[in-house]
Write a protein that binds this DNA or RNA. Structure first.
Lengths: 350, 350
DNA sequence: AGTTAGCACTCGAACTTGGTGAGTGCTAAT
DNA sequence: ATTAGCACTCACCAAGTTCGAGTGCTAACT
């Protein structure tokens, strides 16, 4: 059954009120609600609300309480009723000026966003298709070589490599030539055992040292492939009393502390959705089990090189979707802009 | 007034009981408590407890409840009554095997410690006296130079430096020589305007580029000087119902999220205490205001080079001091050991 | 037919009441 | 000095009470 215009209005009013107060909303409240020009008595509203309840959009927690939106209700609101805010929620871009280090910037984004919205946020680093752009060994001191690897997107990895045989400059130079010949431009996934075998052959007498070097490099590359994720404002979750059930909420907070877990979960689900742009996950729809009492809104941003990353906002189901969606929209636009200007130069990874 | 032997025993019994249960403990409980061979009736205990209350070691939350230790009581316990555990609380050292990257290791320490104790933990990186050990510029691509700086303790910093003039290999080589001449072996604090001026003079026509390079290097160095801090198990705090006052606890959790703040606070207070070894801060004694309903136990570990770092455990006032202290003691010993073996090689910073 | 006023009803929240028991302080006997 | 005994206190719990917001239904109104 399609909702007629009036039912839509009433549903919208119920949700709008509930988003504000977090309390069940009653018929009288709606009938006094002027924003939508309903002008109906509470009795009429009651009849309509009874229908809406039967249809599963709202529910009353007990006989003599008002109504509360169900997940289905929120879903309908987000899909059909919510017109987005016109006024641009200016993300304080002053805070976003320093683009010179990718990592810091993304942390900053998470922080600013959490501060502005009062929800929990997370930002993943862009998933470049990682090809090796630059690789270099240097002798730092008698016992250590330093491998510096720069991959596409200017993410830098360092690795100290202990060596027990003294090397002279020429040896190091040789290694560098060897490494660059084989590895420059290679995608990280392509660096496999075969390639390593081939390099070893060429290394001749230094095979043992090469082994150590490899071990270091492989580790560094492996790390470069991990999806970095930055979070902020996790404790904002505690501000919403409906999530006050500590045992549940603390699990959620733990998930936040364990960024690894979080990143895996997100990677699996969000990347598999080929859709781009803003996604809203309400309650059970969320990919992360621990968030099932919350809602998650994600947005995708793009780097000029084609890499994409995800920004997520986690809040109570009654979060201000309108604000969150428009904030995220503006933020991604702003980010795309910044990246276009900066064109990826001047970035850094840990 | 000095506490006589019996009062001490009773105080100890009260605290021991309270640490276990978290409930106010009554006279009858103590009189049945066999561990200390008191063999007194509850009435006698009551008289003694009344004295202890008058002296400020314990307090009863209301007329007909048992007694609870005060901060003063805890302090006395920690200083005089608590004999440390004999059996070594083995920190699962298997998890500490990978020493190859300082940063990862310290994170791991925080994690393992939080997991084993069920309290919140934090670990600061060692405060090396940071002298530049190695500095190198490389041309990564047409637009970017990469500065790699290694400071004592093998902490590595990277900085991408955009340049708008094409440079050839010889230019880069020149810069490298220049940088190394001036900076190698210099303490980070010594790198000041004068030195920079002197270098600029020598740079001649490339002064502008040098400027950019400097800016990058200064930033990198500045960062290297920040006290790194790693935390774990912050959500463990929520497990203790006496800290269940969400508004207070959430502030504490926020402090944990803001590692910067935390690190500044700690730096100020803990480093200023010249004492080493284990320190116990109870309630108000803690350097961080938000922790005043908790206790903080810190330990100092040493690197062979003389650098030191701090490990902290934050829990409720009724934390198991005995266990925490002995765990920390063993941990620092183990760490000192690991560092001695590894002798600082094979480390890395972000 | 759609809307509304009116009314009986429901049920959670908040408050009251009384009983229970753990624990205390005091006193008097040992 | 220690202890048994006793009156007293007070948080906690369960049962009962009131209160009011909100509902569903019916009958009257437009």
């Amino acid at each position: 059954m399609e909702l007629d215009e009036r039912k839509k209005k009433i549903l919208k009013a119920v949700i709008a009120n509930y988003l504000e107060t977090g309390e069940p909303v009653g018929s009288r409240t709606i009938s006094k609600y002027t924003d939508l020009d309903l002008n109906l008595s509470s009795a009429t509203i009651r009849n309509e609300m009874a229908d809406l309840e039967e249809l599963g959009y709202i529910v009353s927690p007990h006989t003599s309480a008002g109504r509360v939106p169900t997940d289905k209700g929120y879903r309908f609101y987000v899909d059909n009723l919510m017109e987005e805010k016109e006024e641009i929620e200016e993300v304080k871009s002053s805070l976003l000026e320093r683009v010179d280090r990718m990592e810091l910037m993304l942390k900053q984004v998470a922080k600013v966003l959490a501060y502005n919205t009062n929800y929990a946020t997370m930002v993943t680093a862009p998933n470049y298709r990682k090809t090796v752009k630059f690789i270099q060994l240097s002798q730092v001191d008698l016992d250590n070589l330093l491998a510096v690897i720069v991959v596409e997107g200017n993410i830098i990895k360092n690795q100290m490599i202990p060596v027990n045989v003294p090397l002279d400059n020429e040896d190091v130079l040789k290694f560098n030539i060897l490494l660059n010949t084989f590895l420059q431009g290679a995608a990280l996934e392509d660096i496999n055992l075969e390639m390593i075998q081939a390099m070893k052959k060429q290394a001749g007498e230094y095979e043992v040292i090469l082994d150590q070097i490899f071990q270091g490099i492989v580790e560094a590359i492996h790390e470069a492939n991990e999806l970095e994720i930055y979070t902020s404002g996790a404790t904002n979750i505690l501000k919403y009393p409906e999530l006050g059930d500590i045992s549940k909420t603390s699990e959620l907070l733990e998930t936040f502390e364990n960024k690894n877990e979080l990143s895996h979960l997100l990677e699996k689900s969000i990347n598999s959705e080929s859709e781009e742009g803003i996604q809203v996950y309400i309650g059970d729809e969320t990919p992360v089990q621990n968030m099932k009492d919350c809602s998650l809104v994600t947005a995708t941003y793009k780097m000029p090189e084609g890499a994409t990353g995800t920004i997520g906002i986690i809040g109570p189901k009654r979060m201000d979707y309108k604000k969150v969606v428009s904030t995220l929209k503006n933020l991604t636009i702003e980010l795309d802009d910044i990246f276009k200007k900066g064109k990826g130069e001047n970035t850094d990874g840990n």
